[in-house]
Simulated scan of single mutants.
Amino acid sequence: MSYDNTCKYLAEQYPADFIKWLLSTETSDIEILKTELSLEPIRADSVTFLQIINTILHLEFQTLPSSNPAMDFRMLDYYTRLKREYGCQIEQVVIFLQQTTSEIVFRQEYVDTNTRHRYRVIRIWEQDPTPLLANPALLPLATLARSDSPNSLLEQVAAAVGMIEENDERQNISACTQILAGLRFNKNLIRQLFREEIMQESVIYQDILQKGEQRGKKQEALALILRQLPRRIGSVSPQLQEQIRSLSVPQLEDLGEALLDFSSETDLINWLATQHS
């Protein structure tokens, strides 16, 4: 299950709540920016850009501490891209979801010979659950917050979810809560406290399943093509590989057929050019 994408859904569905929590600012004048800046090789699934008047809040949700490129470099890379594109103040927050002792989750800056770039890190397991319990949009995150009695905390979250009046919102928050709770709790306990059919009926649950299936299909198609191309045209440059990775599933399927007629790298270059024309 995609824990990172569940958080991305919440941040984009309830941007004002996340801005209030992270920036202590109340505003309804928010624009969710598209992730055109999210170019390969950086995986953009869990990235959210929220723009308020003169500030962009860049959120990055991480289940595992390791990533490629490394998280600290990714934050620098995004900062420079955002600054170049929008020229405004940028607040960057990485939210780590699963408790770990990895030194990566305690790192809050990128340091190189002539560069030092700082960003904010939240380790959700260290957070006070009280403000999270008070906001329906943050209830899923509350399941992972600090507690001496995690099971009691989960019961509190389940009770708060059950009090959400609007049916669709209750279904979607319940689904997100159950997904994130899976990082910490036994499935049987989650099922005892939440109605499974509510999760299955939820829009976000169905959307995550569909995206998961699509990612699986893309990875399979990509792996097959990157195995076949060298047999047809020899080694493929890293630049061309990145262009191939950016293709959609239908485009990858088309490439899988087209490459049977390729005899040189030029054929691949020309085919890729038709996909961006």
Results as ranks from 00 to 15, higher is better:
residue 61 F to C: 07
residue 49 F to S: 04
residue 75 M to C: 07
residue 55 T to F: 06
residue 67 S to R: 10
residue 89 Q to F: 14
residue 68 N to W: 09
residue 78 Y to F: 15
residue 68 N to Q: 08
residue 54 N to D: 15
residue 49 F to C: 03
residue 99 Q to L: 03
residue 65 P to F: 10
residue 49 F to Q: 05
residue 50 L to M: 10
residue 91 E to L: 04
residue 84 R to I: 12
residue 68 N to A: 06
residue 91 E to D: 05
residue 60 E to A: 09
residue 68 N to V: 07
residue 85 E to I: 04
residue 53 I to V: 10
residue 72 D to T: 09
residue 59 L to N: 00
residue 88 C to P: 08
residue 46 S to R: 13
residue 53 I to Q: 11
residue 93 V to I: 13
residue 67 S to L: 12
residue 72 D to M: 00
residue 74 R to Y: 08
residue 96 F to Q: 11
residue 46 S to K: 06
residue 99 Q to N: 09
residue 80 T to W: 11
residue 66 S to K: 15
residue 82 L to H: 02
residue 83 K to G: 03
residue 55 T to R: 15
residue 55 T to I: 03
residue 59 L to K: 01
residue 76 L to W: 08
residue 57 L to P: 00
residue 97 L to K: 12
residue 63 T to N: 14
residue 48 T to Q: 01
residue 83 K to L: 02
residue 86 Y to V: 04
residue 69 P to W: 13
residue 99 Q to W: 05
residue 73 F to H: 09
residue 64 L to V: 03
residue 52 I to F: 12
residue 67 S to Y: 11
residue 64 L to Y: 10
residue 85 E to F: 00
residue 88 C to H: 04
residue 66 S to R: 11
residue 94 V to E: 02
residue 67 S to T: 13
residue 53 I to W: 10
residue 99 Q to H: 13
residue 55 T to A: 03
residue 95 I to Q: 05
residue 96 F to T: 08
residue 87 G to S: 11
residue 87 G to D: 09
residue 92 Q to H: 08
residue 74 R to H: 09
residue 91 E to C: 02
residue 95 I to G: 04
residue 57 L to E: 00
residue 98 Q to F: 13
residue 49 F to E: 07
residue 67 S to N: 14
residue 62 Q to P: 07
residue 75 M to V: 00
residue 94 V to H: 00
residue 51 Q to W: 06
residue 48 T to H: 01
residue 97 L to P: 01
residue 60 E to C: 05
residue 76 L to H: 13
residue 86 Y to I: 13
residue 71 M to N: 14
residue 79 Y to A: 09
residue 63 T to V: 14
residue 69 P to H: 07
residue 56 I to G: 04
residue 51 Q to A: 11
residue 49 F to I: 05
residue 77 D to N: 12
residue 99 Q to K: 07
residue 49 F to G: 01
residue 101 T to Y: 13
residue 62 Q to C: 01
residue 69 P to I: 11
residue 57 L to R: 01
residue 77 D to I: 05
residue 85 E to D: 03
residue 47 V to N: 09
residue 70 A to I: 15
residue 69 P to S: 13
residue 68 N to Y: 02
residue 74 R to G: 03
residue 51 Q to T: 10
residue 89 Q to T: 06
residue 75 M to K: 13
residue 91 E to I: 13
residue 81 R to L: 06
residue 53 I to C: 07
residue 97 L to M: 02
residue 84 R to V: 02
residue 67 S to M: 00
residue 72 D to V: 05
residue 50 L to H: 00
residue 51 Q to I: 05
residue 67 S to I: 04
residue 73 F to K: 10
residue 51 Q to M: 15
residue 61 F to N: 03
residue 46 S to E: 00
residue 54 N to A: 03
residue 53 I to P: 00
residue 82 L to W: 10
residue 73 F to E: 15
residue 101 T to D: 09
residue 56 I to E: 01
residue 96 F to K: 06
residue 59 L to H: 02
residue 64 L to G: 04
residue 45 D to C: 04
residue 102 S to N: 09
residue 72 D to P: 01
residue 82 L to A: 06
